[in-house]
Design a protein around this nucleic acid. Structure first.
Lengths: 451, 451
DNA sequence: AAATTTGTCTATTTACATTTC
DNA sequence: GGAAATGTAAATAGACAAATT
């Protein structure tokens, strides 16, 4: 077990020891999931009281290094020391990128006719003014209309326009929650949510899943242990595990949400390509949920527009968040997006993209037929379970040497328990299907240790 | 002096008492600048130790209600209980808006030719891809080139594209500073900075000014009392007081900044219209400063694009902030902005707008000739000192009854000391000069108590 | 100039809630 | 199912640093 040797006596003990822990995590002396000494044990060792050790561990937890469980002990967080972001600016791009679920921009529609139609001189001048942080009424109306596609009936005043789904997530974390508060998520969740939470000092609590999604009893137990403010879920298709919650599971979750008064936050950006786009939790809690409908997975990711539906008071707070972080979402972009929705261009683009995704998924299934994985015809990535001789992070490293990017399961992990060894393989990161086939083939050989 | 009557015994004392303070501030029982009981005094009164009172006051300080000064006491913050934002989404719009420094969009150039030229089908598809969170190299190059206008020579890798200056400020607060850290500002400063700091748990420390700007000795004294991480300043023209720092003052400040290793953050968005756009602090600290060049005050505010110049390591952190909060700034917008800069359209727009501002300033001078104010030919707002019978907040209220919006000095205040009674009068909030004349005339009569 | 006042911060104390065995 | 183990959180204690008188 981990033992502390020495710490910098010139600074406060709680900081000095937290620094030692941080260094040991980064140096690999403390491994994911490893158990730390108990408060009383470490207190004895370094000659302080348990209260001080609590402060040490809390400081380390704030830095994302440790997770404590009453009665069980304190553990090194599964993803300790790894930056969680959708995009890591320090990483170079690799030729064969199966890491990021980049929308398939090759299949994007030509926006020029839309631009030509909507942006005449006068309208353009109007759109260059300072605008309503919540979004122009006509853009919100277009958003409300679009949401009927997902089985939601919302008045335009409940809609907020944000600069994409990630922006919506960040604003929700920043405007609706306070540092130190707890938010429940699947114990494998979207990296963008992890990044948003970390930046706002929120504590994520990972809830165990089975093949039908988040376990209601586990969520209930969590809520009884702690005050949980909100529940973040992935929408129709769970990211990154590709599981879909059956109706009964969603019903059970609704009851737990109601029972504990959780604020539901549902990011259904990946549900855009789905053929059954109303199979989300929000459908069961339409008046209480915050529902995020990003467009980027469907078309025109570069526009950075998403629609958020939320109860009026909450919508107002998110809008104030938009005001304080960027004044308003560029109005031209919302105008172009609205016209795409209204004119049917969006729907057409989605159909095209859905086909393309299906073809790529088929390609994946074929190449990996001898492996264990989860994938869906309507989902841009596959969840590949690894054979016992592979660790996800090692595969990441080896793949990178061969110019391929994949993402290990630990990057999605929330909480102390190291997840199953798996990688998420994005089928939408590369524009060329020919290159993707090469990449997948090469990856398969690597996973099989044939190369 | 304030006395506490009772508090909710069911919650922790420190929260219960902080709540009482909050209510009393909102109810007007505690006034701006008022002195609170000392730690020991209040501790005696409610029967706890001074440490607990410290926690009470710190909690109230975190909520923006109190400011403590060692040796002197604890005081109600000047702007206690007022939301600080550029835009308050709960406020209705008034017909005669002289509150917000809205760019004069009437004078905006027609962007259609630029759009037509840059956004051909192929380029448009390219711009719809996922992009570099720092901004595309060609857009950063355009930004670097634009900054030569402000006397700055920066390589493109030091540039980050953000969704406007407010976004830049927010990202700097979120990506470079930690909750609880202290940032120095003028004791009257930009509301957008106050909002960004508040949302990120930063403590602003207001530094006294004289007619030549921030007082170097005061900044030095502040840095000796506390660990100050950064200094935020307004650029060429101080917002909201309209003072310009002479060269010697800027030199003195530079020395203090160097001495204490402060990170300078300079928001020069208002400097855009200036005829001498290189008279900023960054000119004296070009390699260490973070310099924000917003375009909105010049043209096309709706695009939401600003250029931030910062040392490489810092630029990278800000770019990671962009990635985690919105993935990237919409690339089409950066493209349009770049072309405006490159083609000279921007420069032309600025000249037009400068003339327009000068005319409006002249109008203000004339109408308010019998009043005390600070205004500059190149600045969009005036700083109107009020006669002794007016309080800024009362004028705000009375003006609102007459459908006019102005902003009282307390909204810009940082720290415990209530500022001089003054209002900021924006000359750019209304598109029609005719209406502006009516509004200013009406305001002048109100200030003179002729109506 | 020294004593006093005032706020700050780390570490301790203590009561307590949850989980494990 | 009760005792033990484990983490939590509010309030206390006390040394300290800065400003005032």
């Amino acid at each position: 077990m981990w033992k502390i040797n020495a710490f910098d006596m010139s600074k406060p003990i709680y900081l000095a020891v937290a620094d030692v822990i941080e260094n040991d995590v980064l140096a690999g002396n403390l491994r994911s999931g490893e158990r730390m000494p108990t408060h009383r044990k470490l207190a004895d060792t370094i000659g302080v009281t348990p209260g001080t050790v609590n402060r040490i561990y809390q400081e380390a937890a704030r830095r994302g290094l440790l997770t404590a469980v009453v009665g069980r002990g304190t553990f090194v967080t599964a993803d300790a020391g790894r930056k969680s972001s959708i995009m890591d600016v320090t990483k170079e791009e690799l030729a064969w990128d199966m890491g990021i679920a980049r929308p398939l921009t090759v299949a994007d529609p030509d926006l020029w006719p839309v631009i030509r139609k909507t942006l005449n001189k006068r309208r353009l001048l109007d759109l260059m003014r300072y605008s309503d942080p919540q979004g122009l009424p006509e853009h919100r109306a277009a958003g409300a209309d679009w949401l009927t596609r997902f089985g939601l009936k919302v008045p335009p005043q409940n809609i907020v326009i944000t600069a994409g789904a990630q922006n919506a997530l960040f604003l929700i974390c920043n405007s609706l929650l306070k540092a130190g508060e707890r938010v429940a998520t699947d114990n494998l969740t979207f990296t963008g949510m992890k990044a948003a939470a970390q930046r706002n000092g929120l504590r994520l609590e990972g809830v165990p899943m089975d093949s039908a999604g988040m376990l209601p009893d586990e969520l209930d137990a969590l809520c009884r242990r702690h005050t949980i403010k909100a529940l973040y879920v992935s929408g129709r298709i769970q990211s990154p595990t590709n599981c879909e919650m059956p109706f009964t599971r969603r019903q059970e979750l609704r009851e737990v949400i109601r029972k504990h008064g959780l604020q539901l936050v549902e990011n259904d950006s990946y549900g855009l390509l789905s053929r059954a786009p109303d199979r989300h939790l929000t459908a069961l809690l339409p008046d209480e949920s915050i529902y995020i409908a990003g467009l980027s997975k469907g078309f025109a990711a570069g526009l950075r527009v998403a629609y958020v539906a939320a109860p009026p008071g909450i919508a107002r707070k998110i809008a104030q968040g938009v005001a304080d972080t960027m004044l308003f979402v560029p109005t031209v972009n919302a105008e172009i997006a609205s016209e795409c929705l209204r004119s049917g261009l969006a729907e057409a683009a989605i159909l095209t993209k859905r086909d393309m995704v299906a073809r790529r998924v088929a390609m994946f299934r074929k190449i990996f037929e001898n492996h264990v994985f989860e994938c869906l015809d309507e989902c841009m990535f596959a969840w590949l379970k690894l054979p016992p001789f592979w660790k996800g992070l090692d595969l990441e490293t080896e793949a990178a040497k061969r110019n391929m990017r994949v993402m290990s399961s630990v990057r999605f992990a929330v909480g102390p328990t190291p997840p199953v060894e798996a990688v998420r393989v994005s089928l939408a990161g590369m524009s060329s299907a020919v290159d993707l086939r090469k990449a997948l083939t090469s990856l398969e050989r690597l996973v099989s240790k044939l190369v």
